[in-house]
Simulated assay, not measured.
Amino acid sequence: MRTEITDLATLREHRAAGLDLRDVVLIGLDLTGEDDLLRTAMDGAVLLGCELSSRTRRQAEAAGALIFPDIPDLPYRVYRTTLYTPAELFAGFDPARPESYADTPDARIYQHSREQGRLPDPLHALAERLHDHSITSALGETLAAQSNPPVAVMGGHALARDSAGYLAAMRLGAALGRAGFTVLTGGGPGAMEAVPYGVRAPDHIDELHAELAKAPRFGEGAGEIGRWLAAGLACEVPDSQPLTIGIPTWFYGHEPPNPACHWHAKYFANSVREDGLLTVATGGVLYTPGSAGTVQEVFQDYTQNHYMSVGPAAPMVFLDKDFWTSDVPAAPLVQQLARGRDAEQWILVTDDVDEAVDLLQKYSAA
């Protein structure tokens, strides 16, 4: 396992302890003028996006290091070491000028990705893949630091803030938060936003719902998104545990990430994002009513459970019996496929949030 070092203080401590840099990964460090730190064995070392003088570059290469330079003229950092915060994604946004959303890093990165098209040139394709790998690594480290099992809530983006369904999703989030779960969502609007708001403000759901309902939907264009965003940012929510993490994508960049999550693991590649979200939800997945994307996630999740390709079969909870058995009858098919398998005992179709949480707790205690 390689050691990753992301700040100069840690690098100095590492070297002061008499350790060399063999098989060490240095990420995003300004190493100009730090010749002494690199004067050691560096066989197998990897330098990602580090600033180097001509002298330190020659020194590192001669010592056996592999150097990946930063890629210029991008609106994002390729070699990230942390997830995004809402404050980072929405930096520069002025609620008094909703159209200023267009100037945020989130909007500029989306515009840049659109300009590359579906098949970006090799340089930009490589940059996006390196970025997404960094996000996956940061997500894994963030979850590993939590003592609470991660559960995911899947659902569509179209749920309006002033709807009964949005309020129900907030209450679901409150129940999951009180049970102590780390809560993952797709990171966008609708149910993906309502759940983390419920996690973070379980005792103020009705008041919060009333405030959010003043801007019920996000629309097209920076101004409409900005009005939706401003209403969300105006709501004060505790910066408390348990943690909420959104996992959105610039593939659907017209859907803004929500301001409710503590962190966002935002990807360029939607396929990596979807598979990653289902894979890291080791405590189970709850499905609220959604459209084709949610149905795709149901069967992608069940495939992992069917073959136990990423670990033991985990709970699949379908919330809203009528929807999942009649309107979109995905649940009966999953139950049929699971018959006689380990996954069967962890599939639940219910209208009762408490029953859903009980199953998740039973699984986490098993």
Rank of each mutant, 00 (worst) to 15 (best):
D275I: 11
W263E: 02
Y287H: 06
N270Y: 11
H264G: 00
R273Y: 08
K266L: 01
S291N: 15
L278W: 09
A265I: 09
L278K: 11
H264T: 06
W263R: 14
Y287K: 01
T279W: 09
W263M: 05
V280Q: 01
K266I: 10
A269Q: 11
G276S: 12
A292G: 06
G283E: 00
G283W: 00
F268S: 03
V280A: 02
T279G: 08
A292K: 11
W263P: 02
G293C: 08
S271F: 13
G290Y: 04
A292I: 12
L278H: 10
R273V: 00
N270G: 04
P289C: 14
E274R: 15
G276C: 09
D275H: 15
G284K: 02
L278I: 13
K266P: 03
T282H: 04
E274G: 13
G293M: 05
H264S: 00
T288E: 15
S271Y: 07
S291H: 13
S271M: 15
V280P: 04
A265F: 08
F268P: 05
T282F: 05
Y287N: 01
T282K: 14
V272H: 11
V280K: 06
G293V: 03
K266G: 02
V272P: 07
G276I: 01
N270R: 10
F268T: 00
G276Y: 03
A265K: 13
Y267E: 04
Y287Q: 02
A265Q: 11
G283S: 05
G276M: 11
L286H: 03
G276K: 04
A265C: 10
D275A: 15
V285R: 06
T288D: 11
A265S: 15
G276F: 05
F268I: 06
T279D: 06
A269V: 10
D275K: 14
H264R: 02
A292R: 03
G293W: 06
G290K: 01
H264E: 01
T288A: 14
G283C: 01
T282S: 12
L278F: 04
K266E: 04
N270Q: 09
F268C: 10
V272M: 14
S271R: 12
Y287T: 04
V285L: 08
A269Y: 12
G276Q: 07
R273Q: 10
P289L: 13
D275P: 09
H264K: 03
L277W: 03
E274D: 12
S291P: 07
Y267K: 13
G293F: 04
T288M: 15
F268E: 01
T288G: 08
G290C: 00
F268Q: 07
G284T: 06
N270I: 08
T279N: 06
V285E: 05
T279L: 08
R273N: 00
V280L: 09
